[in-house]
Computed example of a mutant assay.
Amino acid sequence: MSMIDPECVRQLLDSRHQDATLVFVRGDCVVLPAAEVDDAHRGLVIASREEVAAQLPDEGPPDEQALEAVATRLDNIVRDLGA
């Protein structure tokens, strides 16, 4: 079972915050502004919107396949963190 899915990636990309960050908290992906990530959760940061956007094609909005590929990579990061 995936911990990070395409919907998590979509939420990160669609966030209204310029510094949107994906954080894994108690089994859920949460999108927060980077300034709101406290010391207790800093180690649970998975990726910033900028990092995720760099993994996506430049032309047009990402399709489901691209979101799925990024979600799989982010899911592996979460697993490496020991979640």
Rank of each mutant, 00 (worst) to 15 (best):
S15C: 05
R10P: 05
L44T: 13
D19K: 05
H41F: 12
R26D: 15
E7T: 10
L56N: 09
G82E: 10
D5G: 10
V23L: 09
L67W: 00
E64G: 09
A40T: 11
V78C: 01
H17E: 11
D5A: 13
A83Q: 14
A20K: 00
P62G: 06
D75V: 04
A53D: 07
L81N: 12
T72P: 03
I77T: 11
L44H: 10
P6Y: 01
Q11S: 11
E36F: 12
V70R: 02
L12Q: 01
C29E: 07
N76T: 13
A35N: 06
A83S: 11
D63L: 12
A54Q: 15
N76P: 11
Q55V: 08
G43P: 05
V9I: 05
R16W: 13
D38L: 08
R49P: 03
Q11C: 15
V52C: 06
A40K: 12
G60A: 13
A20W: 08
I4G: 01
T21S: 05
V52P: 01
A35Q: 12
L32T: 06
R49N: 02
N76Q: 10
A66F: 04
T72M: 15
D58P: 09
D75A: 00
S2Q: 15
E68D: 04
D28E: 12
D80L: 13
G60D: 15
L74E: 00
E64Y: 06
E68V: 01
H17T: 13
E50Q: 04
H17P: 07
S15H: 03
A34H: 08
A71I: 03
L74P: 03
N76I: 05
E59F: 12
D39A: 08
S2R: 01
P33V: 05
P61A: 14
D14P: 07
M1T: 03
H17S: 10
E51R: 09
A35E: 11
D58I: 15
V37K: 01
P33Y: 05
G43Y: 02
V45Y: 04
L74C: 03
P61E: 13
R49E: 05
L22Q: 03
D75E: 01
E50D: 11
A71Y: 03
P62F: 06
P62D: 00
P62H: 01
V70H: 02
S2W: 14
M1D: 07
D63E: 10
D63T: 08
L67P: 04
V78W: 06
E7V: 08
D80P: 09
I77N: 01
S48L: 14
L74W: 00
V78Q: 04
T72I: 15
P61I: 15
A34Q: 04
L74S: 00
P33L: 08
A20T: 07
E68P: 06
G27H: 07
Q65L: 12
T21D: 04
A66P: 00
V45I: 03
I46G: 01
I77M: 06
D28M: 15
V25P: 05
V37Q: 11
A69C: 15
D14G: 08
Q65W: 11
A83K: 14
E68A: 11
L13V: 02
V52N: 03
I77A: 13
S2K: 13
V23E: 06
N76C: 11
I46H: 00
